[in-house]
Amino acid sequence: MRSIRFHGRGGQGAKTASRIVGTAAFLEGLTAQDSPLYGAERRGAPVSASTRISREPIRERGLITRPDLIVIADESLIGDPTARVLDGLSERTVVFVNAALPSEQARDQFRIPGRVTTLDLTDMTLRQFGKPVALSAPLGAVACRLLGLKAESLKAAITGELADLGLPETVIEGNLALAASCYDAVPVVPVEEMAGTPPAPVSLWTPVYEPPTLGSARISASANSPLRETGGWRTFRPVLVPDKCNGCWLCFVYCPDGVISMTKDDLPLIDYDHCKGCQICVQECPTKALVAEREQEGAGTWRAK
């Protein structure tokens, strides 16, 4: 059995990529299993998905704890401890990172102990479609190549999965072309089946009763939500063009996360440490005073503290 764990942000296509790999393996006569895992948070939140492929019946369920291949759709996830991207990694695990850096550099910069390979899928996708879209097909293509699955199986899987999502034929065609070039371009590091490592022994803990101040699902620490910074979730940031703002406060009202405050001059002030980049304010602004700008590497980029 080979175990592939995908990591992305909600909306980036990690779940569909895991299905593409599952379907491609299934079409080649293998046994396959794929399942996503996500919480109650929405677009931009860390998401993972697990795919298992095997020649034998699969006797596992749920999140992969010891991956043979990790596929990372967004390099910013590596620094996010809640995303647990590198959990269960060994030096034999292959790690694919969607990044503009060469493999060696990525390995050093992100301090990944496994065998690293990279490709700039975001750039290839922007070139194919002219705008940012989900990376399902390129992620699936890279994983299929690394696993040694055939290009025809990948093609059939992408066609089936994207049709299931109701995407028009032109979009599917574009994705097939993009997937084919990603399949060819990714530097191959073969994914080996991990030899059965013995499970780590556990000691069962017998909890004792604790008073309800501790023993009930209760949070009494006030104002702890600002500690969870979500600015790194953005691929686009809303930026104010002050001359166009009429001070209507609609952005303030519509922001689902309450990260917009208003100055005494009725101008919105955006808390970029917590803005998830949902773009609702950009869509709702009646005077187009808020515009979406691509997050870039550099001084202006948000970094987890």
């Binding site: 008073p211 309800p212 699902a217 949070i219 009494s220």
Partner: peptide
Amino acid sequence: RPAHLGFKASAPHALGVAVL
């Protein structure tokens, strides 16, 4: 006089929060 319950504007608390 429950230690884990009560209502005070200056001391907000959340009960039955989401745990994943």
